[in-house]
Design a binder for these strands. Sequence first.
DNA 1: CAAGTAATTGTTTTT
DNA 2: CAATTACTTG
Length: 666
Amino acid sequence: MGEGGWADGLNEAQRAAVEHDRGPLVIAAGAGTGKTRTLTARVARLLESAVPPERILLLTFTRRAAASMTSRAAALSSDPAAAQRVWGGTFHAVAHRIVAEHAQHLGLAEVTVIDPSDVVDLLDLMRAEHGLDSSGTRLPTSQTLADVYSRAVNTGIPAREVMADQFPWCLDHMDAITELLRSYGARKRARGLLDFDDLLISWRALLADPDVGARLRARWDWVLVDEYQDVNQVQVDIVRLLCPEGDGLTVVGDDAQTIYGFRGASAEHLVDLAHELPGATVVTLDRSFRSTQQVLDLANVVRPGTLPIQLTADRPERGARPELVACANADDEARTVADAILAAHTDGLELRRQAVLMRTGSHGNLLEVELKVRNIPYVKYGGISYLETAHVRDLIAAFRIADNPADEVSWYRLLTRHRAIGKVHARTLATRLADGGLDDPAEIVAAAPAAARTALGATLTALANAHRTTAVASVVETCRDAVGPLLRAHYPDWARRQDDVVRFAEAASRQRDLAAFVAEQTIDPTNVAGDWAGKPTLDEDWVTLSTIHSAKGLEWDAVHVIRACDGAIPSDMALTSHEGLVEEQRLFYVALTRARDTLRVYTPARLPTHPTSFHARHVLAKPSRFLDDRARAVMDVAHQDQAPQPGAAAPRPTRVEVPTLDDLFA
DNA sequence: CAAGTAATTGTTTTT
DNA sequence: CAATTACTTG
C-alpha cells in the first residue's frame, strides 16, 4: 500500500509535519488543530517506512494520552501489533522503566516509587531523629519540609536559601531541618525509594553518564514529545540529552496552553527550542477541526501567549455564539447548568457529549448534588482520586512490601493500622523491619506492645509469604487477606470502603507484573473510581465534570464553564504575581477551546465564602476579568430572570410556624 | 504510649 | 460539615 491510511484527511500543514524527515521539528499547534492526529499519523508513517517500533519513543503528559495515541497509530498502520510495541508513556513512567532497568548503575537494590504523601510520611517518621518532634514549640509541618526539599531539588538552590527566601518560619530550626533533609535523601537511597523528582533526576543522570548515556541514546532513533509547553527544566534536559543535535526529535505544543507553571513548567521551553536547535523546522497548525468559528472568536480574544496563533475554523457550518449566562448565585448556577444539560439531552445530544469544566474540584459540589437529585449520571475527573483514598493506599502498601521489604514508609503505614501501635512504636518497628526484620518476625512481634502481638504476627507471616511468592494472583490474595482485618478494625465505615479494596485487588491480580503496576498507578493514578468498576458503566451515558487541568486535550460538543468569576477564574491564589495571572488566562483559554459546538460560560453574582458549608455567608462576585468588553462583543449575554440587581437585598422569605409538640411531653 | 473526645481549622491546579 | 490537631484519660 503505497501511502498508508495515515495520509487520509490531512491538510497541507499537517502533511508537512507528518512527512518531515530527520531534522528537528517543532509543531506549534493551536487547540483543536489536529495535533494528536498529526502526531499519531507521523508515528504510523514511521512504522510504515519500516522503522522498528521499539526505536520510537513517544512521551506524553498522561497515561491516558499515551494509550489513546498508540491505539490510534495502530488503527492507522497496516501492522497494528507493531504499533503497540512503540515506547510510549509519561516522562515519569518511562523514567521508572529506565531506572528499574539500571538500578545497579544507580547503586539501588530495589526500586519503589513513592508519591508526595509518602514523602510526608517518611519525613514524619524521620523528624524525631533530628529533634524536630518536640510538641511544645510550633514547628514547621512535614508537608512544609517536603516543599522545601522539592523546591531545592528542582531549582538547584541550597535548602538554607530556599528557607530564608520563602519559608521564614523555618529559620529557627534551619540546622536541624537541613540535616533532616540530607538524611532523608540518604534514607531513600538505602531503602530503594524514589520520589517523583528522583525519577526524572535519575533518568537525567543516567543519560549524562558517558557510558550508560550513550547506550540509552542509541536505543531510540525517533523521539516525539507531546504537550511540550508543560515540561520543566529537568525534562528539557532529558530531551536534549536524548537528541543532542535534535535529530529525529519532534515536539508538539501550544504556548498559550501552559497550565502547569506551578510545577515548574514554562512555555518558553517550546519557543526556545526552535532557536536553540539550528535548522529546526517550525510547522504551525492554526486550522481548527474542532470548534465553530463562533467559539474560536471568543477563544482568540482570550488567548494570551507569544506565538501569534489565531485559530480559524475548518468547519463549514455556522455555529451559535458562546453564551454568557449571569446567575443569581451558586445554587442558581447549578440548576441552570442541569437544565441546559437536560434540554440538550432531550434534543438528542447524548450526555457523554457534554461536559462541565471548573477551576477547582470543589466548584462542582453543588452541581453534583443537583445532578444526583435529578438522576443525571455523571463522572467527575480531578480532585481527590480513588487511589488516594486511605484504604486503597493501605492495600498498595502491602503490595509494595511484598516486592520491597525495605520499604520503610509502607511498613510505617501498615503498622499504624494495628491496634495498640501508634506513631512511636510504628517508627521503631518500621525501621527494624526495613533493615531485614522480616527474616525473624518473632523478634519484631516480641518488641511490639502486647495488645498488638496477635494481629501483627499474622500480618508479618502473610507479608513474608507474599514476598516469597512469585505468582501475581496469589501475592494479591495474600496481601488482600492480610490487610482486610486491619481495615475492618481501623475504619468505622469499613463496609463502604470494602468495595474499593476488592475492586482494586481484582484489577491488580490481572496484572503480569505487580510491582510495575503499582509503580504505574503511583505515578499516574486512575482518578475515577468507575475506571475499575468493570463493564456495567461502559454502555451507560453520563456527563463529564472535570477540572480544567484534567480536561486538557479533550473535547465535547457542548461545554459549560462554571464559576467564571474573579476569585475562581482567575483563582485569587494566583493574583499575587503577573505570571500567575497569565497562567489563569491560559487556563481559561484551555477551557473555552474544549467546545466543539456549544459553549456556555456561567457567572454567579453571589458565591458562598466557603465551598462546602451550608451555613457559609454569601458574598458578591464579579464576572471574571477575562470576560472584558472585547470578549462580550462576541458572546450572547443572557440574564436569568431571578438575577437580582447588584446590591439589592435578597427577598425576605415568608415565615412559617412549626407547631410545638409540647403536648406530647406534658 | 495509645485512643478517645473536644476544639479548631479550612480549600488550586497534578506527574 | 469534614478532617485534622490538641488535650485528656486509661
